[in-house]
């Protein structure tokens, strides 16, 4: 049985339909207003992160322990004064075994005065007692299975498509979980911003076609940087893989680091 449609109900229905159609653009406009207040940066320009895969390699045979890399990193990235480093250089000293003991090697001493920024003082043990000694530059290992990004409760840290592991400082709440999770000690809580900070591979430099500051100043090419997606002729990174037996730090943790080392001892971790 047909019910007569009253004018009031018809007008009401038409009004509701018009309101429904108008609501979508109004909501979009309102969203744009809200986000103009909350979001400040614009979309990336001229650099496509999906077209690159950055890696770094360390040839410890070539490191002379000058610490220019650690110094340059601190200046380039305005890393706070004090024991905060995005990259640093460690000195390993393996002493000779005590006479009469049947050990193959003595103690392993590791030191890192101020991250190596001021260079290295004399060895703490006399030269005659040293069996072997060398320098190891350290930085973010660019893990393929990065523990730091897995534990972040707010999704502030992530593996960028170009291989860098980055932190979104506007999302980071400074809880410090990632600092505990990183097995290589590559993160710290900045006393200035109160957020976690780490090596970004000098993201502002590599996106402009420059090398990271540490690679730029390294006088002996102990640090090698390159793009796996765009190998250049005589690519230093490809030559590094060809000419060296490479290893990664703490491979047993399954983090699959993308920073490979050459010429390090088993004591390095």
């Amino acid at each position: 049985m047909n019910k007569p449609v009253s004018r009031r109900s018809l007008l009401g229905k038409i009004g509701a339909a018009v309101a429904g159609v108008l609501a979508a653009p109004a909501a979009k406009a309102a969203k744009a207003v809200v986000q103009r207040v909350l979001v400040t940066a614009e979309a990336p320009k001229g650099y496509d992160p999906t077209q690159h895969k950055w890696v770094m390699a360390i040839d410890a045979n070539r490191c002379i322990g000058c610490g220019f890399c650690a110094e340059a990193c601190k200046k380039e990235n305005h890393v706070p004064e004090g024991p905060y480093f995005r990259t640093w250089v460690e000195r390993y000293i393996i002493t000779k075994p005590k006479p009469g003991s049947s050990a193959a090697r003595g103690e392993t001493l590791v030191d890192c005065p101020n991250g190596g920024i001021n260079g290295y003082p004399e060895a703490p043990v006399p030269k005659e007692d040293i069996q072997h000694s060398f320098f190891v530059p350290k930085l973010c290992n660019l893990c393929q299975h990065s523990p730091c990004t897995q534990v972040c409760p707010v999704g502030a840290t992530f593996d960028a498509p170009d291989g860098a592991v980055l932190i979104d400082p506007t999302y980071c709440i400074g809880c410090g979980f990632c600092i505990q999770a990183c097995p290589y000690g590559c993160r710290f809580l900045s006393p200035v911003t109160k957020t976690a900070e780490k090596c970004t591979l000098c993201y502002h430099r590599i996106t402009r076609g420059l090398k990271p500051a540490c690679v730029e100043v390294c006088p002996t090419q102990a640090r090698i940087f390159g793009d796996l997606k765009h190998p250049v002729p005589d690519d230093p990174i490809q030559q590094f893989y060809q000419n060296n037996l490479v290893e990664a730090l703490k491979p047993h943790l399954g983090t699959e680091p993308r920073v490979f080392y050459a010429g390090i001892d088993k004591e390095v971790r």
């Binding site: 909350l38 498509p161 979104d168 502002h204 420059l210």
Partner: peptide, 30 residues
């Protein structure tokens, strides 16, 4: 209203963060 427009551009994070990190001034010229 609150999800940033670039969220999910490359993954489960704010895509614009990459551009923000890239806008810093360099100190070493090369």
């Amino acid at each position: 209203f609150l999800t940033p427009p670039s969220f999910g551009e490359y993954g489960w994070y704010r895509g614009a963060a990459l551009a923000e990190l890239a806008t810093r001034d360099q100190v070493y010229a090369g």
